[in-house]
Design a protein around this nucleic acid. Sequence first.
DNA 1: AGTCGGAATCTTTCCGGTAACAAAGTAGGT
DNA 2: ACCTACTTTGTTACCGGAAAGATTCCGACT
Lengths: 337, 337
Amino acid sequence: MATKKSTAATIYDVAERAGVSHQTVSRYLAGYEGIRPTTRERVAVALKELDYRPNLAARSLATSRSHRIAVLTGDLLAAGPSRTVQGVAEAARAAGYVVDIIGFDVDDPSSLTEVMDLIRSQDLAGVVALAVSDSMHDAISRLAIDAPLYLDSGPADLPGPVGQSFNAVGIQLALQHLIDLGHREIVHITGAMDYLAAKARVNGFEQLIRERGLRAHPVIEGDWTPRSGYAAVTSGQIDPAVTAIVAANDQIALGALRALDEAGVRCPVDMSVTGFDDIPEAEYYTPSLTTVRIDFQQQGTYIFNALMAQIRGDERPETGAFIKPQLVVRASTAPPS
Amino acid sequence: MATKKSTAATIYDVAERAGVSHQTVSRYLAGYEGIRPTTRERVAVALKELDYRPNLAARSLATSRSHRIAVLTGDLLAAGPSRTVQGVAEAARAAGYVVDIIGFDVDDPSSLTEVMDLIRSQDLAGVVALAVSDSMHDAISRLAIDAPLYLDSGPADLPGPVGQSFNAVGIQLALQHLIDLGHREIVHITGAMDYLAAKARVNGFEQLIRERGLRAHPVIEGDWTPRSGYAAVTSGQIDPAVTAIVAANDQIALGALRALDEAGVRCPVDMSVTGFDDIPEAEYYTPSLTTVRIDFQQQGTYIFNALMAQIRGDERPETGAFIKPQLVVRASTAPPS
DNA sequence: AGTCGGAATCTTTCCGGTAACAAAGTAGGT
DNA sequence: ACCTACTTTGTTACCGGAAAGATTCCGACT
């Protein structure tokens, strides 16, 4: 039966109740083996009776380590990042870590100064930076945070962070699907090009186009938003020969779908469209969107694990982690007519 | 010129450098007035030279108060809540608070036990619970958290939390718009009915229907998802006389739009549809969705302020805060034909 | 029985701040 | 110049844990 006390119980309270020293309680909590069973039992009982909860501030002060990680992100609003954050948060919680969300202004690198102060004040176990543009990438990597930092961005020509490993393969899944349907003239609408994810998708797209020996239509630059997908189609940049569009995410695909509809171009009869992410709404677009499903939950887990590996100081870069994208065929793709 | 030191500077380091006692430094940091200008200057210089950052764990331990709040939420994925969280996080950051995101399993009230432990270990300044269903509402309010708690849920018959004040007015904006267009047979597809937001929208809807003396079609129960909007239309629950649908959010509207399209019912010619939230995609649905825009940023600010008021122990419940919803007329509504 | 050594437990110190109290320093009034 | 009353600054204790060193306990062995 938990005793109601106005102030939270400390290890001293527990120790007194169990008739031992506070250090013994501390050892018990740390899982130390060498405690006599009778003593152990007394401590356990006292702990339960007082409904003891450790004070994390005190622990963190004493050890100068915490079980808290920060997620730095430019926008939580975008569907992808927000789900990734969710995934990281869940993985972190399962591992007994708490996640601080720290936002910064994507357009203002100087806002990082505040962020930096915040991070340095917090003794964090680690920091994850998600959805980071190139300019921010440099600013962040210069940040000289003393905690391990997992940066989900970087040059597109390197293998890249584990959290971004699926981009090329994913986009190729969509592209190959269109090729299999018989399409030969295919164009890509990109995400915001200062994001690694966008560049990786472009690279994946162009690589497969080359491998298959297809005509390389210049990509059309978008910025992840439906608006940019709409603009890409209405801007007249698309070669009339094109019969299929590979959008860098579902929102762009939505915008494109809408523009096609307004222009009287039927999807999928006259033009096929694929998305990326498989957000819950994608199935209900008109027509239902063929897209590539990403397991953001798993992505979050991988990212968290990668950070934990850094925290523990592991050397091996955990090569096995790869998020397997999955093609979801719905009604927005069909053979060219 | 900041001196590079391997370990972070403490107030003791600063004190030594400035030739004063650490307490004087502490006073300076606390903004205490009674410090001689010359001393003040020396401290300021030392502070800057050592690039001092306070250790929040130590401060929190000493004061048993922290500048950290937790946001408890069932799902970050849903568009509304995630944007609200974003808003709260931003308001909190502006006020110098850090936000911990704590997720729990909506379907498993026992997961709250863990959450509870987490919260109690963290010495938090306050807790915000968002997107809370009724069952969770009870579980959470029983949680006996010693920090101030802002619960964004509750009985639908009370005025309700400030964060939810816009529901009735917002839905009535949509409904009145349809009435103005000449619609008389209007049905509502609800959100998940164990959420305050869903109930408040239903109440607002039914109230205005009564006031205008219109036929009260029974509401069709949804769960915020596009799937449920789709199901509501295809299930045949809608009276053939109905000429307009008021959906509880944009996703539901999307599902409905899709079902109507498949059934060959033209929107807005044969059926008008309104959404709620104005997510960025809504404009690009087919047809472009008439909806009610909610300023989630502002909502987040209000919620944060409400929590801060509780933390400070203010009595007056800050009655002035109201998020003004805004009707956004697009192409999914038209006079009945 | 006396000793030795490891196991179990206790005591002290520290982490980096804040709070309360004590002690200087300073100025004004007589 | 002396005392009083503020001002300014310094000292010490404390928050709740963890780490390190000190101490007690206990059984095995001589």
